[in-house]
Structure formats: C-alpha cells, structure tokens
Design a protein around this nucleic acid. Structure first.
Lengths: 154, 154
DNA sequence: GCTTGAACCTCTAGTGACTACAGGTATTAG
DNA sequence: CTAATACCTGTAGTCACTAGAGGTTCAAGC
C-alpha cells in the first residue's frame, strides 16, 4: 500500500496533494493558526486525520471564493459553532460579494479604456503611438477620474 | 507667492499633490529607478522640474491602467525613444489587456457563484447555512473546477 | 534674530498570502 | 545498506507601496 488508505494518518505531502495546495502552505496555515498544531510521529513529522483534510478543503474553497485569510478564520469559527444563527456568515458573504462586484465594475471600466486605446494604435512610431499619448495625457482617455487601476486588480 | 509658479523648481510635497500620490511614493519610485535621482537644494531637499511632473503623471497613469511597475519601466523606456516603431508598446498593451480580460472572466464566474450561494441562505442556523455547506463541499457549487478565487483578485 | 510648526531627510519594518531556499533529518524502496 | 525522496526548521523574498522613528531644514510671524 502506498498512500490512500482511509483510516491511517497521512503525511503533509498527501494532505497537500489531496487539497490542491503545497506542503509549505499547510505549514503556513498551521503557523498562522488556521490549522491546529499537527500531531507528530516519532520522527517529528506531521500526521493528519481525515478531519484535517476536510478543514483544509474548507479553507481552500473559501480562499478560492476570494475570502481573505482573516475572513476564512471567521468562517471557520462560525462553522465550528453550528447551532448559532448564521446571520454573521451571511453578512460576511454579502460584504464579500459587494467587494467583488465593485472590483468587477472597476475592472470593466479599465478593460473598456484599454480596449479603446489599443484599438486606436496604428502601428507607426512611438512618437505617434496612441497608447503612449494617452498615458502621457490623462485628458485623452475616456473619462476624467482615475480608472481604479491597480486597486481594481487587488 | 506660495507654490504654483511655473518656472521654479518644486518640492516633493507639491510634486506629490500634483500627481495624486504621496512623497513616500515619489521617494520609492526614485529608489527603484522609475524616477531619476532628484536634484537637491543646499539643505539636501529634492527639487523637481516640470519634466518630472510629466514623467510622474505618466507613471501614475500607467499604474492606473493596471500596468505593473516593471511594465511601466518598459513603457517609459519606449516613450524615451520616440523615433522607434511602437510594436513593442502595442504588444505590451495587448498582453496587459488579455490579462485584464482573463481576470474579468474569472471574477465574473466568482461573482455568479457567490451570488447564487448567498441567495440560497435562508437565515437559519449555521448548521443549515447554505454558505457554510457550499464551502464545506465543493461539489455543491455550480461547477467542478476552481473559480479563480484569490488569483482573480490580483 | 528667534521661535515654532510644517515639511523634509534617511533607514527600517510592515502589509497579504504565500513561495523559495538552505541546511539538516526521517522514511522507504530496492 | 544505500540512495532517493519526503520531511523538518528558520529565514528571506515577492509586489507596490505605506508607516513610523528620529532627526534636519525651511518659511512665516513676532
């Protein structure tokens, strides 16, 4: 038998591969307290149970949804108290959704502007390049305020 | 006279306020070589000309368009050689546009999923909370691969 | 000329969420 | 028994700034 037996404790490598992350990330999550300190075998290597696989899948999935690590921490805490009302979960998720929607909007504006600018370049010298021109003079682009730019990408 | 005379050299504070950034950022750009080392007055304080205002506006505008600092470095380099053909500018901009479009797509998928999940929560206890449920089990969400998540937000 | 407060200086460290590496130990297949 | 692989700890690097400490210079008012 190599690995995927279902009752035995597993090592960090298998935990990582089963949750689509890396051993380094697992150790990092332990360090910042998203995962509890792992049990160790005689050789001081971490051994995990199925429960940890589940917890880590929850974490990865929440991160995949774009929740910050701090938000994931709160979500885990809530998930650990199933009898409480879920208003807080709901609020957290709605706030995150609003964030995502706002980013989406800014990114859309950015794309439109970029598309327009790129389309106007006629492939001549830099001196007449529309892209450089627009970057040099904000008045030349579609609207008067900032586009959201770097922030939209975060 | 306080500040905005047009021929005199200006200080870092005015440069910053005229380009919508902070003195710290200006010093940072100088340190990483986006701005040349500034001239100094007798008291060792940086003095800038209009040319620097223009250059910094270009930088901020490009950043606003979501270009990375490294891309901005290349764009500045190209803008400094106006007689060369602008293929490279064009390529850089198109690559960036493609990046933005991909992010946009992933973020849209994410939003849809989040919207659907949040809508299904009926405000009861955590034990029955749809949001927690979906986070606990990937199979419950709309599709089978990752949504792009944290990466979509960068 | 002197004082006061704002603006400036340098240098270091912190952010978020990992990732990568160095230098060593444990496990395991053959 | 050996060699390859997986694991360990601890530190530093990523990106694009931002914040702070601790000190200097400037400009205005008296």
């Amino acid at each position: 038998m190599t690995s995927t037996s279902s009752h035995a404790a597993i090592g960090i490598g298998e935990l990582a591969s089963r949750t689509h992350c890396k051993p380094e990330t697992v150790r990092y999550y332990e360090k910042i307290g998203l995962l509890p300190a792992a049990l160790r075998n005689e050789g001081n290597q971490r051994r995990y149970s199925e429960a940890t696989v589940q917890r880590l899948m929850f974490i990865r999935h929440a991160r995949d949804f774009g929740f910050s690590v701090e938000a994931v921490r709160e979500l885990l805490d809530m998930a650990d108290h199933p009898s409480q009302p879920c208003d807080q979960v709901d609020q957290l998720a709605r706030r995150h959704l609003a964030e995502v929607e706002s980013r989406l909007q800014r990114l859309t504006v950015l794309r439109d502007e970029l598309q327009r600018t790129v389309a106007q370049c006629d492939g001549d010298s830099v001196a007449q390049c529309r892209i450089i021109e627009v970057l040099s003079d904000h008045r030349l682009c579609g609207h008067d305020t900032a586009h959201g730019g770097a922030e939209a990408l975060r």
